[in-house]
């Protein structure tokens, strides 16, 4: 190949058409350098990294690099950075954790992804829940308690509320009386007669003598409804109960929170509890 781009001096290929010669001008030097550098790079890359598809797998490459290995290394690196904080979280007393803004922020931000993965599917991205199906976590109404200890317990062991179906225990008039009472109670218009019947029917065993709720049994005097406030919804809850065997009572309401023990580490559960506590209604 000629050394220089001089149209008048370079040798030609010997072909000439109507006086126009085909010259053997070389590509520019920078181009040749890049070309050689490129193929040398390719060869080295092919030797070092998996790049040739074979019948069952690709070649392994001298470096033994794989994408998943790199990912795992990055995860391990991240875990190493988080480890001292997680240790501190595990050792910290619940109240101290809530009172320490820096650690509380750490817990909340760390739990964001866990909440998205494990909780948001039912409870919504901001813990807003879904009316009649999944409880709202951002209000101050708690069935089992809104302090950090109880929230940790709820996440760890799960919850399964229960309310018997009353359709075969109480006659239709009685169920209607109870429904009227429960709706009036929520509006602060409960009558003494209604409350008397409520006690007589045995509802007070769980919901309390004043219908103000008990452990796992909702408060019926506030404005928040677990399964909906319309008359039809209240009737359905009283008639068919909650978490009855669906084979016997197909219309029963299902309210089951799975246990996360074993699925999540105690530190993750604790951080998750802090996040839930901070959603708006923690006690």
């Amino acid at each position: 190949m000629a050394k220089q781009n001089k149209p008048q001096q370079v040798p030609d290929t010997g072909y000439e058409w109507d006086g126009i010669r085909e010259l053997t001008n070389p590509p520019p030097r920078w181009w040749m350098i890049s070309f050689h550098a490129s193929w040398i790079f390719c060869v080295i890359y092919f030797i070092l990294y998996p790049s040739i598809p074979l019948i069952h797998d690709s070649n392994k490459g001298l470096l033994g690099w794989t994408q998943i290995k790199e990912f795992k290394e990055a995860v391990a690196e991240n875990d190493a950075i988080k480890a001292p904080y997680l240790k501190k979280i595990a050792e910290m007393d619940n109240q101290a954790l809530l009172a320490d803004p820096a650690m509380r922020n750490f817990a909340e931000s760390s739990a964001k992804a866990i909440f998205g993965d494990f909780c948001a599917g039912c409870h919504g991205a901001g813990g807003q829940g879904a009316l009649g199906l999944f409880p709202n976590l951002s209000d101050d109404n708690w069935l089992y308690g809104g302090d950090l200890d109880t929230i940790i317990e709820t996440i760890t062991d799960g919850r399964e509320g229960s309310m018997p179906a009353h359709i075969e225990m109480i006659d239709e008039a009685g169920i209607n009386t109870l429904t009227d009472f429960v709706i009036a109670s929520s509006q602060g218009k409960a009558t003494p007669e209604g409350l008397a019947y409520f006690n007589e029917a045995g509802c007070a065993d769980c919901h309390g003598e004043n219908a103000a709720g008990g452990d796992g049994a909702p408060n019926l005097t506030d404005t928040i409804w677990r399964f909906g406030s319309s008359r039809d919804e209240v009737l359905r809850t009283i008639r068919y109960g909650v978490n009855e065997d669906p084979e016997d009572v197909p219309q029963t309401r299902i309210a089951k929170m799975p246990a996360f023990e074993g699925k999540l580490s105690p530190e993750s559960i604790k951080m998750l509890a802090v996040k839930v506590h901070q959603l708006g209604g923690g006690k």
Partner: peptide, 18 residues
Amino acid sequence: HERQPLFTQMSDGSIQNK
């Protein structure tokens, strides 16, 4: 302003925003 939920009704009937 928190987007989900935009507001929350509390048990005493008041409205809370985060």
